[in-house]
Design a protein around this nucleic acid. Sequence first.
DNA 1: CACTTTTTGTTTGTCAGACAATTGACAGCC
DNA 2: GGCTGTCAATTGTCTGACAAACAAAAAGTG
Lengths: 240, 240
Amino acid sequence: MTNHIPISQRLHDRLGNLISATPPGERLPSEPELARDLGVSRATLREAMRIFETQGLIRRRQGAGTYVLSPSHVIESGLEVLESIETLAERIGLKVAVRDLKLENRLATEEEANALQVSLDTKVVHLARVIHAGDRAVAYLIDIVPEDMLDPGELDENFSGSVLDIFIRRGSPALISSRCDINAVTATPDVARPLGIQRGDVLLCFEAFLYDTAGNVVDYSFSYFLPGVFRFHVVRKVGT
Amino acid sequence: MTNHIPISQRLHDRLGNLISATPPGERLPSEPELARDLGVSRATLREAMRIFETQGLIRRRQGAGTYVLSPSHVIESGLEVLESIETLAERIGLKVAVRDLKLENRLATEEEANALQVSLDTKVVHLARVIHAGDRAVAYLIDIVPEDMLDPGELDENFSGSVLDIFIRRGSPALISSRCDINAVTATPDVARPLGIQRGDVLLCFEAFLYDTAGNVVDYSFSYFLPGVFRFHVVRKVGT
DNA sequence: CACTTTTTGTTTGTCAGACAATTGACAGCC
DNA sequence: GGCTGTCAATTGTCTGACAAACAAAAAGTG
């Protein structure tokens, strides 16, 4: 058991650290120098740099060098990278608590079966909980997951409240990406009650489909956020 | 004048065409074969493929090959690529009209000067307009641009209503990306009146900073959308 | 026959070294 | 000063090679 971490991944991490540690506008070391320092070939290094260039973090100019762009472009806490609310909160140093966790095993509704691409007689786990920051409820999260995706034991103790974190921790199913529809909604009674707000209050709503590598939807979720607590942003690249 | 298009850009276009022409789940030709067909080296090809892999369009697996992912993951009308509302509407075949265009030249407010990273005595153009689809007002857009970025003549006829489209059409300033903060808000009287809605109605709000290659903010904008007309989504990649 | 193990060819991952194209700075000239 | 050519530094691209991982066929085993 060599616990083999691919070179490209280690390289991606270290290069990311280097870039974020470099002041905006500064030039990175030259490619031959960097490759030598990081112990990889120039071709491998260039592929890793291409990732950050695609994300708009650096800019390479033939003859001039590679420059770190302004930090305003950094995706940092942007929506491009999928992470659970719990992970996000921890990363920005916000203390959150999960309350009113409600679990329900039942048959999928028509809407849920359609979203999960399963038949109507499929059993699903319906998981709802409220996220508190300080003494305020700030988010209401609902996950619908096919029953065979979750062991009941996984939802007992040590459960952070995030289905996504469970999947990531155990490495199965192999996740790729999530499609997240963004909307502004008024709170329905279902949502207003657990959040302790008035029916009709405004909420930011994410409707998300989590895909594994085979293209299956392994999690269908709704996330309702009180405006102003979390700041979500996305970096939009200008099309060529 | 050879109109020299860099190999990497031509390659990016052709590879993108190939990927979009390949059914999801299908395998692409092997790298040596593709490189030969496209007339580039494998190293160059791999850098181009890394772009599409970063964007979640393909997946490369050592020993197995490179596969085109499901179309559900495609950014399609996602937020990853910046385009004007007018361009977006045209692309999806929606007929929209610009009404109540209001232009104002004045000094920047403190908030605007801060957002645009200019001094308080800078003159800015304040541009507001309402987007109609059918007979309904569906969006209210505000741009604040430093005065020296826009010629008055550019805002006369043939003006689609989009500052972004002006910048893109004339190729100056050289744009990179936009940072877009996402929020749900209740309509203030300022916004409710032009949209013809009640004060307190719910709106989806984008606050965006448009950056050029030098890192300057060249456009500061607010976009208010009636929920349900436009569907915005974002593809979130699972972090490693 | 059914099942497991081994082999083998294919494919991506990584490497080393080389040359071309572009940039930016500097010296020299008018 | 302003222009021009030179030159070193840097990224862009190419070639060829080997390693690692996968998938399917082949061989072994009960």
